[in-house]
């Protein structure tokens, strides 16, 4: 008689119960041990300090008093100065409604304050004198250069502001060079000396140094020919002569 052996393996229900109990225990352990992030974080409180209305304990201390806005009266801001002089030092007595508990300053802190005031006054005077001198110089320069030349052209003469004719020519060449540049060697360099006549016409140009790149030289000459049309007459009614260094990166003055 054939008979299959009776399997004695424990049922699946026992395993299920064991697994459930294990998960339950694990859940409580994790929850109560704080391993899982608490969902409600405490937001750090933000304190706003009224820096305008809060009286300071000491002008040099620069920090609000501990009493803060609890003080009854708010000190008035100092009156705007009428002249260029520094405002007179406001003593604690002149401040309206200053707190009664304001600490008295004496001894070394008072002396330091005076020295500071002195230094500040001296610095103020020096700066004022410099500003006045610079303004006077600017007015003189403006009066001397007014009414000369065209708008946008160098109008100054000699060493006056705006008299840098070479920079103007350089900028004209630079603008034109951007449209004509071409070269075949690695770092071609060409130095050209330009001579501009009294009427602003190019009298001559001389290649003082060449790197042998014919294409680059041709582009430099093309630049000069094109830029020549925009040259104004040199200041002072004299001829102008200047060397220019042409590189693929740009033009420099010699």
């Amino acid at each position: 008689m054939n008979r299959r052996p009776q399997i004695k393996t424990g049922g699946f229900g026992a395993s299920m119960t064991f697994s459930f109990v294990m998960h339950l225990a694990l859940f409580f352990v994790i929850t109560y041990s704080g391993l899982i992030l608490a969902p409600h974080l405490q937001e750090a409180p933000v304190y706003y300090v009224d820096m305008v209305n809060l009286p300071v304990a000491h002008p040099q201390a620069g920090s609000p008093t501990v009493a803060g806005s609890q003080t009854g009266a708010v000190p008035q801001p100092p009156a705007p100065p009428q002249t260029m002089h520094l405002p007179a030092k406001t003593t604690p007595k002149t401040v309206a409604g200053a707190p009664a508990t304001k600490p008295s300053v004496k001894g070394t802190p008072e002396e330091t304050g005076r020295e500071f005031e002195e230094r500040l006054k001296q610095l103020e005077r020096t700066t004022e004198a410099r500003h006045q001198a610079a303004a006077l110089e600017a007015l003189k320069s403006k009066a001397a250069g007014t009414g000369k030349g065209q708008a946008g052209m160098p109008t100054g003469t000699g060493k006056e502001a705006g008299s840098d004719y070479a920079s103007y020519i350089h900028s004209r060449l630079q603008d034109t060079f951007r449209t004509t540049i071409a070269y075949q060697s690695k770092n071609p360099v060409v130095v050209v000396r330009l001579t501009i006549g009294r009427n602003g016409r190019l009298l001559r140009y001389r290649i003082e140094r060449s790197s042998g790149d014919r294409i680059f030289e041709a582009s430099v000459i093309d630049t000069i020919t094109k830029a020549e049309k925009s040259f104004p007459p040199p200041p002072g009614g004299t001829e102008f002569e200047q060397g220019f260094l042409f590189k693929p990166q740009g033009i420099g003055k010699q």
């Binding site: 393996t9 699946f12 395993s15």
Partner: peptide, 21 residues
């Protein structure tokens, strides 16, 4: 997911026992 985990572990225990035997 809890159901999946509980049943999975139950199967793991059951199968460990079964295969070992």
């Amino acid at each position: 997911l809890l159901y999946f985990s509980v049943v999975s572990w139950a199967i793991i225990f059951y199968k460990l026992l079964q295969v070992h035997r």
